[in-house]
Nucleic acid binder design. Sequence first.
RNA 1: GGACCCGUAGCUCAGCUGGAUAGAGCGCUGCCCUCCGAAGGCAGAGGUCGAAGGUUCGAAUCCUUUCGGGUCCGCCA
Length: 617
Amino acid sequence: MSTHDIFATLRARTVAILAELLPELPADSFARVQMEPPRDASHGDMATNAAMVVAKLAKLPPPKLAAQLAERLAALPEVAEAAPAGPGFVNLRLEEGFVRAQVASVLAAGERYGDSTLGGGLKVNLEYVSANPTGPMHVGHCRGAVVGDALANLLSKAGYAVTKEYYINDAGAQVQALAWASYWRYLQALLATPEGQALAAAGPASLRDFAASARDRADFESAFTVTLQYGGDYLVPVGQALVAQRGVALAPGADGQPTAAALAEIQATTVAMMMVDIRADLAALGVQQDVFTSELALVQAQAVSTAIATLSDKGLVYEGVLEPPKGKTPDDWEAREQTLFRSTQFGDDVDRPLRKSDGSNTYFANDIACHADKIARGEALLIDVWGADHGGYVKRMQAAVKALTDGKVPLDVVLCQIVRVMRNGEPVRMSKRAGTFVTLRDLLDDLAEMTGSQTAARDAVRFTMLTRKADAQMDFDLDKAVEQSRENPAFYVQYAHARCRSVLRTGGEPADLASAPLEALTDPAELALIRRIAAWPRTVEAAALAREPHRIAFFLHDLAGDFHVLWNKGREDATLRFIREDEPEATRARLALVAATATVIRSGLQVMGVEAVQEMR
RNA sequence: GGACCCGUAGCUCAGCUGGAUAGAGCGCUGCCCUCCGAAGGCAGAGGUCGAAGGUUCGAAUCCUUUCGGGUCCGCCA
């Protein structure tokens, strides 16, 4: 609930009246009563469905109840007119003074206008990005980063205590493969030094072979019977850093093999360096997370076996054999006994393996430990932002969290669909091998070149990523994202804010706007703008409840539209200009409205993580 | 074979958790700048909400079936 939300205010009045009219009804009868802006502005400022929702319980025909309700609502000081309509709506037209007072509310509250107590300080853990630390971030991670970050801001504004978390997948086969790739780069770097060359020349035959294999990827792979999944050049600096830090200490022993300790150290160093890059990329996107949890650390602390034991104590773990997937049996399928979790008891389609047939833990098991860790930290609501390719994973994770907490802690998952990067209307081909692999850094650099500013690039990406529902596929058009035209919502909103600032600068930035005579605001376009502003608090709450930060972008687009309309009316009709030399009081009132508009735009952009510009250049 | 997401105007998309005559931008059509707030503005046309059933006072929204598009389905993370 927001203290600024006039819809909530009138809804509360409505419920109070209903309780008086129908004293025999229990209090929870009114839960579904809504007070909303009507779709058609000709219906007034607000409409309530109260009569229709309560009619059946009250055993009254909706129109009759609506008429009674309207009569009582019309008597309220905030209400100018209340009329029953349609199948049982009550339409309200508000006193203009009450509407205008919202401008003063905004000026008094500043950017805290729209803050809500909806969350009640509930501890929420929001996990997003969590890109594998095996390389630079690519554009595929970008959407989740922006959506997650904006959602964090949104939930904070709505009164939740948000922890922003990054789960580092630094255990398992992927990072082991990464370590081998780093090892290769290390050997290459080592052989470029006199010490390395001396070692190769003096070493046993196996070591000399090594020197040869280090130069060639295929030779290296056959020498070690490994596949280099991560052949990219981005590990070259890692190899060099390893040489600089450790010299020949990680070089192969007499048997030509790296020691387990050496590989573990290389893995740790590589992951650490990748995380430095990833954090730099995130920072360039304006994303800063609070907690970075290491999967490896959880594994080493026995958190996984503890989590499995917890589930086992609840009788939810057994040894069993899964059916092969129907219709599409893998060629090499063979039935194997595994440790399984009874996720079907919690709505999943099949039970899921916690341990592979060789007894090692699955990623799922580790992820359960990660979520158990969050729960142990006292988080009361978990939200994960994942890529669409993890969609098949939602039910099992929700099942696990439900099992761990006996249903007390919900897990919401926000799935982000794929983003295609478009240039000149053509999709940019993505290929790691061909080097057209688009990293987040490349994307930001390109946009920075197009806009001449790192900040503008970041803001273009963040805004554009929020102009679609997360669960809809999206094309990210580089040219459109920085285009300065009405077609680009990011520009359109920024332009509105810049215009506001421009007007306020011209008007001399008066300090006493809070006392402005708002009754001077009488034009329909002015009142429409105020009504839009008044809808900001409920927009924040609805977006937070739905976990849909894109709604903020659409709200700002509408708000900017209302403001641009008013601006343009001033072109047609000079008496509607914001600043009028001959009317100082009307000017103050209009500047107050402009200041309130700017404040709400800034507040919305803040949720999106976009900087509000002072002027367009 | 199954699970999940998406099908809304010619195009790209909203639609406030079930409300009234389904909205916006682009495109299209028609008006509007010698100057004064045009990197534009105003107005208009354009939709059986993929299809068919069902639930109820009321469905783009919920349920079932079905047709398209996407993502995924033990021993990757």
